[in-house]
Design a binder for these strands. Structure first.
Lengths: 171, 171
DNA sequence: AGTATAAGTTTCTATTTGCAACTTAATTTT
DNA sequence: AAAATTAAGTTGCAAATAGAAACTTATACT
């Protein structure tokens, strides 16, 4: 039975503190959600989420500084500014969906509507889960910590496994 | 091409605000990480993360109130109190790992060590992703919103598909 | 020229954070 | 049994942050 116990001294050395420095503030995830929903302009964010003007301005510059949003003055209307998600920002989607799904699962029984679906077959997406290298869903007890030096590389099989995962993903 | 654009009026009706109410505060994720690493007592949290005493006390009661931690006085040493993750708390693991992986990917090139592995075969876990009902990895552009009423149930096939996913997960 | 809009700033107040010292109850040590 | 230590908090106070409302600046429309 795996024990998920990270060496305590190294607790500070994972990516979480860095992630929280960028995303840990009160409104960051709400701003991000709006951005994912196509919101791009200051006044649009403002009317979308109930945030104070100055705080929004502050958060937008901070998210821009940390490379999550990209800020461009609009060429067609030079009063306007466009905030767009960068690749780094787009990469937060799994985190956001996972958090949202958790909120939906444990929230006050609010049947969430509308629902996120795969555009291809219009079926709801799966709950976000943790998976082993070969795609098995893993729970808390299936995980443990290892030093990367001690991991047996499966490079020979790698292509093979990638292929199997791809096949799996293409059902 | 799918457009991930949620009806704006309904932005407030997803699980995210609720999730953020419980987990959106400054130290909540760090406390959670410690809890996942087996930390259970007040003084242990205190020496693990650089948080002030009163703030920790406040966060622990709040996380307890929102059902993420469970608080029990220790029977063997009645000075001590045990904080343990509830099922609701354990269910935040995918969110936390996703956020952590993002931090590792986009952080300052810190080769994170140790690494999370599947206890069964000692191989690193996959990046947390969004998947379609049949297990395909989906990106931002593959998603769209639908009213649950408009979704064609696949209950007839359901067992079949579940089966295929299970097979996929068992490679 | 006059009004409206977009994206901020500024000012001022209220809340939250964080440090340091204090408390209370239960254990260990001497 | 008395004294010291430990665990889990509280309290008081200074500093930082959040938030509401009014103000600014540059553009654009009429």
């Amino acid at each position: 039975m795996g024990e998920l116990r990270e060496p305590l001294q190294q607790l500070a050395e994972c990516g979480l503190p860095m992630a929280l420095e960028a995303m840990g503030e009160r409104w960051s995830f709400m701003i991000l959600r709006a951005a994912f929903n196509g919101v791009r302009h200051f006044e649009e964010f403002l009317s979308e989420i109930s945030i104070a003007r100055n705080i929004l301005a502050n958060r937008l510059t901070r998210l821009t500084e940390s490379g999550i949003l990209h800020r461009t003055p609009c060429p067609d209307d030079r009063r306007k500014v466009e905030y767009r998600l960068t690749e780094k920002g787009l990469d937060l989607l799994p985190t956001m969906i996972a958090l949202r799904q958790w909120g939906e699962k444990w929230g006050t029984g609010v049947l969430s509507n509308p629902v996120l679906v795969d555009d291809r077959d219009r079926q709801p997406i799966l709950p976000v889960t943790i998976r082993s290298h070969d795609g098995r869903v893993l729970g808390y007890m299936d995980l443990c910590w290892m030093h990367s030096a001690d991991i047996t590389p499966i490079s020979a099989d790698m292509h093979d496994i990638d292929d199997r995962v791809r096949k799996l993903s293409a059902i």
